[in-house]
Simulated scan of single mutants.
Amino acid sequence: MQSNNPVFRNSDEFNGRTSNAYGNQVYGGSGTAHAGYGTTDPSTWGVGTPGSTQAATGPMTIDSVVQKTGISLLVVLVAAFATWVLTPALGDRGSLLTDTAVSHLYGAMMIGGLAAFGLSMANSFKRSISPALVLAFCVAEGVALGAFSKFFDYQYGHGIVIQAVIGTFAAFAGTLAAYKFFDIQVSNKFRIGVIAAMFGLVGLGVLEIVLGLFGTGLGIYGFGFVGFLFSLLGLVVGIFMLVLDFDYVENGIRAGLPERESWRAAFALTVSLVWIYTNLLRILAIMRR
């Protein structure tokens, strides 16, 4: 079965583009037929077979995915913290922002955001995953998030960033627990629906930016009722994106994909968590208003 997720769709390993002597789909490095999607319990996720010859570095395991995801998130946090510290101080809440402070923050958000978007496209459509590109994306995303978070912390009260971070990891833990204990089965229609919703939200966001250049807009990035609904919908879509990520990790491990594919899974999980964090931060800001 071919993935509808752009992150996984171009991976030969994730989509079984080779076949064995019997005409069955096999995955790179494994030489064995795939038994099907959604047929295993996450509690049975393995950590690989010692001494496997599937790849020079062994197969992808839950441990390798956790390690690569941890590294990716650490890079995002370090870049965000560095941006927060190195940009000019904004002063006390309610004080007027200087032009220098505003220009630095918006510059970091624009440069980091555009770089992260370009690198995310490169990682999504690259057939062979590149750890260097994944980490470069994490750096760019961290720069954008650092400036974004600093502005929200100044504008809507101290502690809002910590609350959003805690909420993001709570959403991750809750979604993983639900996926495992309720044995959630990911259908093809569900995949298509989530990906369509994600691209729809991205498209509306781009339209809002374009309309903003002409002094108008839809209000989806505002702090009114429309903005709240848009952020809430984005949060729900982000949680569904995590479900897709868990499904692909589960089936990738089952198929015995090479360890380098752990970076692809880590990239997808990082994108989903960043998506959830930004929407949750906006929801908290709107509620504080």
Rank of each mutant, 00 (worst) to 15 (best):
116 A>L: 08
267 F>E: 10
132 A>N: 08
38 G>W: 03
89 A>L: 09
131 P>I: 01
29 G>E: 03
241 M>H: 09
42 P>R: 06
208 E>P: 06
68 K>W: 12
2 Q>N: 08
37 Y>C: 00
267 F>H: 15
32 T>A: 09
67 Q>V: 15
130 S>C: 07
138 C>L: 06
153 D>F: 03
141 E>K: 06
43 S>V: 07
278 T>C: 07
188 N>S: 11
242 L>T: 01
204 L>M: 15
271 V>T: 12
61 T>I: 09
203 G>A: 14
35 A>G: 12
223 F>V: 05
227 G>A: 00
55 A>Y: 08
29 G>K: 10
179 Y>L: 05
285 A>F: 03
228 F>L: 15
217 G>S: 02
164 A>L: 04
275 W>H: 15
49 T>S: 04
171 A>W: 04
6 P>R: 14
178 A>L: 06
281 L>C: 03
254 R>G: 13
63 D>W: 08
286 I>M: 06
91 G>A: 06
123 N>M: 07
216 T>V: 09
276 I>E: 12
193 G>W: 11
269 L>E: 13
141 E>L: 14
87 T>F: 05
65 V>Q: 11
210 V>M: 12
13 E>G: 13
80 A>S: 12
235 L>A: 11
282 R>K: 15
253 I>K: 11
248 Y>F: 13
90 L>A: 02
61 T>V: 12
51 G>D: 10
255 A>I: 00
251 N>Q: 13
273 L>S: 05
15 N>A: 03
20 N>V: 00
90 L>R: 05
30 S>D: 05
94 G>K: 04
24 N>P: 01
69 T>R: 07
281 L>Q: 13
198 M>V: 00
189 K>Q: 11
8 F>Y: 15
133 L>D: 12
133 L>G: 11
30 S>W: 03
153 D>N: 12
231 S>N: 13
168 T>Y: 06
284 L>M: 06
166 I>V: 09
63 D>K: 15
88 P>Q: 13
175 T>P: 04
179 Y>D: 01
9 R>D: 13
35 A>S: 00
202 V>H: 08
17 R>M: 03
47 V>F: 11
103 S>I: 02
115 A>R: 02
262 S>V: 07
54 Q>A: 15
117 F>G: 09
34 H>T: 08
75 V>K: 04
163 Q>D: 14
215 G>N: 01
266 A>K: 06
238 G>R: 00
207 L>W: 04
55 A>F: 03
135 L>E: 02
256 G>E: 03
160 I>W: 00
258 P>S: 11
8 F>A: 08
236 V>N: 04
146 G>E: 03
52 S>N: 05
65 V>T: 10
100 T>A: 06
30 S>E: 13
222 G>K: 11
207 L>Y: 03
39 T>M: 09
82 A>M: 00
245 D>T: 06
136 A>I: 01
168 T>S: 14
99 D>G: 00
248 Y>W: 12
13 E>W: 01
132 A>E: 11
258 P>I: 00
156 Y>E: 04
115 A>D: 05
